[in-house]
Design a protein around this nucleic acid. Structure first.
Lengths: 110, 110
DNA sequence: CCATATCACTTTGTAATGTAAAGTATTTGA
DNA sequence: TCAAATACTTTACATTACAAAGTGATATGG
């Protein structure tokens, strides 16, 4: 909803608003190595509770970053994958990866 | 605190944890075009309330992404700038910028 | 010379968001 | 038949972010 004062639509600003939501980048990173089911994704993401994860993938589906495919309702079998837009975020994840390796200190072992 | 199941320390994972916090990327982006005072930064970021902003820059200072310089206490004059580590995040912001321009639709007027 | 603005925040109370824990309905494997 | 897994939802609680107002001091304008 917010945007810089001097401009009515700023793509970077909006992009940041999308990506700064908790778990979003983790979800995208997890899906970069292939489609996953809900619990599988949950395990890959690590630490996100199902209520939040469900809400987040729904949002990501709405803005066309993730696509959801229901293979069967009973037994339940769903898969989440990145769309073209989602795949394009690999560049962002790579940049974050590079930065992390260079600037985040490995915690010293006790 | 969280980390992938198969590894004890993952730089990407930690980096994402840092960058996914609300306003963090906005703050970094704002500081990329030079140091700013508190209210100046607040205006550049756009929409973040001072309590949150104060807390966020304090955290970013603690992990050495932002540096705070107090020029005078009275009248109050402070400036926030990016450290080397913070400057290095320009690559991340650029990647987000590219993605936003390509994949975020401009809202239709009217 | 008094009101107003600005600086860098802090405080207070409330709204939004995220959390753990448990539950649902069904199938598969031991 | 019991435990585990699938994909979630529900509930009650905790954390986080929010708007609005306030603080103390100085500089500016009428």
């Amino acid at each position: 909803m917010n945007h810089p004062t001097d401009q009515s639509f700023c793509p970077v600003y909006e992009a940041i608003n999308v990506l700064q939501e908790k778990w979003t980048l983790h979800i995208i990173r997890s899906l970069l190595d292939g489609p996953k089911g809900f619990n599988e994704l949950s395990r890959a993401v690590g630490g996100c509770n199902p209520a939040t994860l469900a809400q987040r993938v729904e949002k990501l589906e709405a803005i066309n970053i993730v696509s959801k495919t229901i293979h069967s309702t009973m037994p339940p079998r769903t898969s989440y994958a990145l769309t073209e837009s989602g795949q394009a975020l690999q560049k962002v994840i790579e940049a974050i990866d590079d930065w992390g390796r260079q600037y985040l200190p490995e915690p010293v072992a006790g």
